[in-house]
Amino acid sequence: MSGDPVNFSDAFSLNEDYFGSGNSSDYVLDDNALLCSLQEVRTFSGLFVPIAYSLICIFGLLGNVLVVVTFAFYKKAKSMTDVYLLNMAVADILFVLTLPFWAVSHATGTWLFSNATCKLMKGIYAVNFNCGMLLLTCVSTDRYIAIVQATKSFRLRSRALAHRRAICLVVWGASVLISSWTFMFSQKYSVQGGAVCEPRFQAVSDPVRWKLLMLGLQLLFGFFVPLVFMIFCYMFIVRTLVQAQNSKRHKAIRVIIAVVLVFLACQIPHNMVLLVTAAQLGRTDRSCQSARLLAYSKNVTEVLAFLHCCLNPVLYAFIGQKFRSYFLKIVKDLWCLQRKQKASGFSCSRLHSETFTSRQNSETVDNENASSFTM
């Protein structure tokens, strides 16, 4: 902590320019109105965040691309859950593609790209993150209708499937609308000898109020709405499955519990940090220790929240028996293409014929409301 007094209004303005994405100012005000160095936090961020983002990008891209390929070439989406899973995979792919830009920004300590790229990356990140959460809510609702409202599920879900394009457009449109402020306020600007890509509210009359509003929207639609829907839907789903005389109900309950616990484990820490951040906006009585702790927490919990996009393919697709069978067909076809020169008495055309026959038999057994994961 520096021992030289600084101009209070200038230091406060500097600190309040930073908002979101885990990037924090090098200095914040302590309770004595002196500058408190956060350089050690920046050093930690420059090492930890690029590595974490790179791993999330690689595994998230691989898992979600496999989901898209499986749906596109091997399994026709036959229920709204399948449609939501496909859209969620696309949203996660777009989301993880923004992570290399933020990894470079954390590694270099400055935003090296243009202002247009800043707005685009911030906007894509916000749109797809919100879209993923809304689609997660839609999956929970569809599972609730299919299991709890079983007598009405065929009519309701058939009608929804017939209007799947309109429903998906509404979800994506709502995500764009919720994220529109990110496109408006995000910009590249210089500070402390470098450049940052952050929402900036200097043009508005009350920046702190705007920041609180934006944080509130992010918490509402990015966490609390999905959480309420998931708790409501899965609570009734579990009760229905427990009461049902079904030999597979225990496995289905384990899947549901895993879905809820992973969601909570990934999202609660980051959103609690956001709540603390919102509560401290505009305060000038923060100590150096609390400021450093909050900065560390932002970096770590944000990485944990982003990890959820890697786990979605596992939780909603690969854990399902039917989806896993189609994924194994992809592996077999790839193996066949590599070995077709050496194969003896076994051709790729035969494998494709067997795959097609197996798919037809599987789809004949499945009903129209079948889902791609075990429930």
Rank of each mutant, 00 (worst) to 15 (best):
L135G: 00
L135K: 00
T137H: 02
D142T: 04
D142P: 00
Y144D: 04
I145N: 03
I145K: 11
I147Q: 09
A150I: 01
K152P: 05
R155W: 10
L156P: 02
R157M: 13
S158D: 14
R159K: 10
A160F: 06
L161R: 11
L161S: 12
A162F: 12
R164W: 12
I167V: 15
I167D: 08
L169C: 11
V170L: 06
V170N: 02
S175G: 09
S175A: 15
W181K: 09
F185L: 13
K188G: 06
K188E: 12
K188T: 05
A195I: 08
A195M: 13
F201D: 04
F201L: 10
Q202F: 15
Q202N: 15
Q202M: 15
A203P: 00
V204F: 13
V208T: 14
R209N: 07
G216A: 07
L219W: 00
G222S: 06
G222Y: 05
G222H: 03
G222D: 03
V225H: 02
P226I: 03
L227K: 07
M230Q: 05
M230V: 01
F232K: 06
Y234R: 11
M235L: 13
L241I: 02
Q243N: 14
Q245M: 11
Q245E: 15
H250S: 08
A252R: 02
R254L: 04
V255R: 06
I257V: 14
V259Y: 10
L261Y: 08
